[in-house]
Design a protein around this nucleic acid. Structure first.
Lengths: 210, 210, 210, 210
DNA sequence: CATGAATGAGCATTCATTCAT
DNA sequence: TATGAATGAATGCTCATTCAT
């Protein structure tokens, strides 16, 4: 099991937990829109507040630092994009299941291309602590694929060492991400379906080669 | 052949071309060191000047904008990292050549892990024009792998459609990059040699599956 | 009638119109004092803010550019100095009325010698747009004298062509201004009352000569 | 007689007086062209040097401060424009001579409208010392008209007190200057000949009124 | 809780002046 | 004498953060 990173806490002077959740959601949606356009650094806190629909003063009732907004955004993106997948419980351990999992993962990425692009580009602006937390979420995704591959190996569907499994899991995670961060190079020439199909073939044939 | 993008010009008030080259090199080296630590946005022009070994005034004798420093850095990195490889002329068109090419590419990335990480992370802060230029350089790298794969297909070593070739070329380029930008996930568990070997196997077996 | 120039707008991030008016007034008073001493170019925005009684940050909540301060100052000076006069409605059309008008105009200038000196000297530092606006205000002053002279001609008090009227109106406006911008040459030798009396004689006799 | 102001000295490291004169003339011509376009403050020393046809280093061999350039320019303009006139020796002392003198003065101004505009606008940027010097030159011009008027009074052509003479002399000097600094208001509607004729009439009739 | 005016440290950039060659 | 690279103080402006209302 993965070492469970503690979710960094974001300060708020407001008590009502419910309100906090609501306001932060507004904030996140506004910020995502803004960051897409100008990136984190070029977006000002005033703009973020405005995009969220409230005043700069209110913004600071719900966060401690500008960086908190970025963290909230990254956390939210990961939550929506990967939470379901990374808690996936391996069932059969067949190549079909692997294929299906890859498909789910790639489709999810395709659903959130812009959001994920933000995440990949801005993560480095987070504090070390927050960065670790985000990385740990991604690590869970890798771990999920590892579990699945390991199962396939156990069941004799594949033959791989642990190192190969680790690398292959990372590999598939990166391949998925590349659909987002290489949008400019890939989307013009391939549909998501083609991309999934080809990547799956490439990967499955690849790991069979081990 | 690739459409040749014009290299964006960086302004200088100094006339001596030689001196410009020298000072810019100092600047680039200092900036790389600095950007590694704090990233482009958090590095101030004064710090850049200091890291380069001269005053802020002198810095601005050799550039027009802070962004120019980033461009110079990216350009230099790409130049050193990829120039030789992306102008590679296909010879035999065998799988061995492909393997060798992959190896060269990955080793080159390993040589410049930190520099390339900077590049991948900061490119988006460049002006659209400079971004295009940098992307075009990367595109050349993809094109090189495409040429090689295409040759392999022509010679019957592989069987792939053009789309598959395009995707596979992108794939291998990304795989190489991941050694840099996923340092935190990969370097602890794999040596570069292992990484190369496994990725090569994965890739060659993969494309054979087409 | 004069073509009505649009008053150039000065940006502010503050919403309370009332507060804007108050702060700008502070700013104008501080700036006038400062510009008297060192002129617009040598006064720094920090000094302006300090003279206004607030911080540099606050200054920029009420203006967009340093130049805006100058515009605000010029506009304010003209407003206080000339607004009442330049909207003057001709009544009798006698030489007495003309004399009285000149007197009013000169006295007004005498009230604001320093402010007007600033205006005459710094106008050229305004943007073309703002310059036009200020010039248009001055043009109204000229036009007022033109209307008055024209009336005198209609009533047979004077005999002048339109060109002569135009020139004479400009002449009297300049004569008034000279009391401000030639302070060094005139104030030591003449009191304002003497100046008014002599200039009036000079002018009235002058135009009678046409 | 006028108190003779000492001409402020401009520092130079070069010994050859002849060369100094040549270089300064180049400098003045370049600077005038530049100041017309952007004014003194916005023109940089580098631009001045370039406009003069030599390097920034050389510029500073012939002046001590940027302000020296402005002083040199103002001095030169006054020299060319007024030297001849302000050393004028009164002859007959008739109204015809007065008229002729006014005409000469106005024509001279018309010849150098742009240069004089520079002078009127930038004088205030000079050091107090240099300002005094320039003012003293202008004072000589006033004094010349005073001498002429005084002579006319002596010969019974006019009847004026000393104060009236002083004011009238200032008046005519200002009237001439207004042809330059109110170019925008006057040149469109009047030719220089019309302007001279009307101003002369206005003035002569005016002073006759005393 | 919400607001938005106030703050001032911080930053990119400019430019007059110097001085080694 | 002429050159132009180097310098760094100075400046306009921004923006995260605070706090009185």
């Amino acid at each position: 099991m993965t070492k469970q990173e503690k979710r960094p806490q974001v300060q708020s002077t407001v008590k009502d937990e419910n309100l906090i959740a609501v306001r932060r959601e507004q904030m996140i949606q506004g910020a995502i829109k803004l960051f897409k356009e100008k990136g984190f650094h070029r977006a000002t806190t005033r703009e973020i507040a405005k995009a969220a629909g409230f005043s700069i003063g209110t913004l600071y009732e719900y966060i401690g630092t500008k960086e908190d907004v970025l963290y909230l955004v990254c956390d939210s993106i990961y939550h929506h994009a990967m939470e379901r997948l990374s808690s996936y419980e391996v069932k059969a351990g067949t190549l079909e299941e692997l294929q299906e999992m890859i498909r789910e993962y790639f489709l999810q990425i395709n659903n959130m291309v812009d959001e994920l692009t933000i995440m990949y580009q801005e993560t480095k602006s987070l504090s070390k602590e927050a960065q670790h937390y985000v990385f740990s979420k991604e690590f869970e995704m890798v771990a999920t694929f590892e579990r699945l591959l390991k199962r396939c190996v156990q069941l004799g569907e594949l033959s791989m060492t642990d190192k190969q499994i680790h690398l292959a899991a990372n590999h598939i995670v990166v391949a998925g991400q590349s659909w987002a961060f290489r949008k400019w190079a890939l989307h013009r020439q391939h549909s998501i379906e083609e991309f999934i199909e080809m990547q799956t073939t490439l990967f499955i044939s690849g790991v069979k080669g081990f």
